[in-house]
């Protein structure tokens, strides 16, 4: 999703150190390297994807964010990115805590389970929603902890995590999420992008 990368890229200042957690094929890492002067590293659980990244000369280590974030010292990166993977962790709570420990700023993007299509699916069909962004069936989904933009807001409030910026993505439309339009954005956003600070 190009728009997501654009938003993330805008958040990031030049000459900063960036860690992409769950970097996949390294597309975001390459996008950032091309568009910014940044020192970008990646952590990825899939061997196949890690090999792909390394073949492209990217500094990626094979590992699992739930265990391997521990090795990074406190505040060792200017930005830590978690793009659309929070929902796949056993303990998203611990992961977020670790991200905020390792990064001075943290960028989290979540597929929004509060989107109207998702709500409608469950309401009308009485079935677990399957959408373009969330193409899995309940029995084979890697997504263990789906949440909505509203849920994530509540989580940050409870954990006293400062949401520095929050962006809604709906198709190619990019807009700001504020406390006053939160209910509406939670209904129309496919993706929420958050810049967090401790």
């Amino acid at each position: 999703m190009k728009e997501e990368f654009k938003v993330i890229s805008k958040f990031i200042q030049e000459k900063s150190r960036v860690l992409d957690v769950g970097c996949g094929d390294g597309i975001l890492m390459e996008y950032l390297s091309k568009n910014k002067v940044v020192d970008v590293r990646g952590l990825e659980i899939s061997k196949e994807k890690v090999k792909k990244c390394l073949s492209n000369g990217l500094a990626v280590i094979e590992g699992d964010a739930e265990n391997d974030l521990k090795q990074f010292p406190d505040l060792s990166f200017d930005y830590v990115i978690l793009s659309q993977t929070l929902q796949a962790f056993m303990s998203p709570e611990n992961v977020i805590e670790n991200l905020l420990r390792v990064g001075k700023k943290v960028i989290v993007t979540i597929p929004n389970f509060g989107h109207w299509k998702v709500r409608l699916d469950l309401l009308l069909k009485g079935e677990m929603p399957v959408t373009n962004n969330l193409p899995y069936q309940w029995y084979n989904t890697p997504n263990l902890h789906m949440c909505t933009i509203q849920d994530f807001y509540n989580f940050c409030n409870n954990k006293r995590v400062n949401i520095y910026k929050s962006i809604s993505l709906n198709g190619e439309k990019i807009s700001n999420i504020t406390t006053s339009n939160l209910k509406y954005k939670n209904l129309i956003s496919e993706l929420g992008i958050f810049l967090l600070e401790k």
């Binding site: 890690v50 390394l54 990626v60 280590i61």
Partner: peptide, 9 residues
Amino acid sequence: AIGADVGFV
């Protein structure tokens, strides 16, 4: 730990 440029597989 020292921020070196490292890849691992």
